[in-house]
Amino acid sequence: MSTDFQTARIALGARLRELRTEAGLSGKDTAERLGWQRSKVSRLETGKQTPSRDDLKAWAEATGQPDAAAELQGRLQGLETQYRTWRRQLANGHRGRQELAVAETSRTRLTRGVEVARIPGLFQTADYARHTFIANAEFRQSPRDTEEAVRARMKRQEALYETGRLFRFLLWEGALHALVVPRPVMAAQLDRLIGLIGLDTVELGIIPLGAALRRSPAHGFWIYDDRLVTVETIDAEMWLKDADTIALYERAWDWLSESAVYGHQAHRLIARARAALDLG
């Protein structure tokens, strides 16, 4: 969980505690009024649990300050904008999130990204994307809309061929060898990467496993112009928009790019990974 998100959740919890104490209520009193377990009141006040909008409305009413509900819900909206759980985003399948990605890509001139364990969605073949969506739906136990999601991801890739856009991506060499799909599918995917190297809108750098690093590629992230950074975790996706955070991720991207190889050197690493598949 991001430090910024947790800090904001703790601040929201402190505001809830303030409302309770102003009303002269103990934690036990509040729990009884709301019909909750005492532990829930404690978790909300200490920032260990994210409240729902209904929780906040009920809290404001229970503490005798119903007008505070709008303020509390506004704080929650700020949290949800930054920290979007996959359970909520994939409630109806993957297509909706892919269509959102299409929209973000269409309004972006410069897209930068780092991936450490998989091929970026913008560069995936349909088969690679298909296997990825199926596995992800199984893992998250979300509805399957595989073909619709694949079509949306392929539509997003149309931006790669539009004049005036630039896609600068760094790929950790290990991602070239991560067999998250069958070997023939991976072989076709690596061929696809090789074909992208000569595209004038794409700058693909591979970070060799043995490269000297100013900073390790701890996790993947995407930067959209200078207005948005997205970061995926196992349970959520963070949308980070404040200037200082964006600048930090831009510095991380710059430092990692110093260790990457491009052009024929990148081609050689991709070809080596393909040869290692040993398809016979």
Rank of each mutant, 00 (worst) to 15 (best):
M1N: 13
D4T: 13
T7W: 02
I10W: 04
A14L: 04
R15L: 02
L16P: 02
L16Y: 05
E18T: 14
T21I: 07
A23Q: 07
L25I: 01
K28I: 14
D29Y: 06
E32P: 06
Q37N: 13
Q37L: 12
V41T: 08
Q49V: 06
T50E: 11
D55Y: 01
A60M: 08
T63G: 08
T63M: 05
Q65L: 12
Q65I: 13
A68G: 11
A69F: 08
A70K: 09
E71R: 09
R75W: 11
Q77C: 09
Q77G: 15
Y83T: 10
W86V: 00
R88W: 08
G93M: 10
H94Q: 11
R97E: 10
L100N: 02
A101L: 12
V102M: 11
V102D: 01
T105A: 06
T105S: 11
T108R: 00
L110H: 14
V114G: 00
A117T: 14
I119W: 03
L122C: 07
T125S: 10
A129D: 03
T132N: 07
E138K: 14
F139P: 02
F139C: 00
S142P: 04
R144L: 12
D145H: 01
A149C: 12
A149D: 05
R151H: 06
K155M: 13
Q157T: 06
A159Y: 08
Y161G: 12
E162Q: 13
L166T: 15
L166Q: 14
L166S: 15
F169S: 11
L170S: 11
E173V: 02
L179W: 02
V180K: 06
P184C: 06
M186S: 09
A187S: 10
L190D: 06
D191Y: 01
L193T: 04
L196D: 06
I197K: 05
I207S: 00
I207T: 02
G210Y: 00
A211C: 06
A211G: 03
A212P: 11
L213N: 04
R214E: 04
R214Y: 08
R215E: 00
R215Q: 03
R215A: 03
E232G: 09
D235S: 15
L240D: 05
A243E: 04
D244R: 05
T245H: 12
T245I: 04
A247S: 11
E250N: 09
E250P: 01
E250G: 12
W253A: 02
E258N: 08
G263N: 03
Q265L: 11
Q265D: 13
H267W: 05
R268N: 09
R274A: 13
L279I: 01
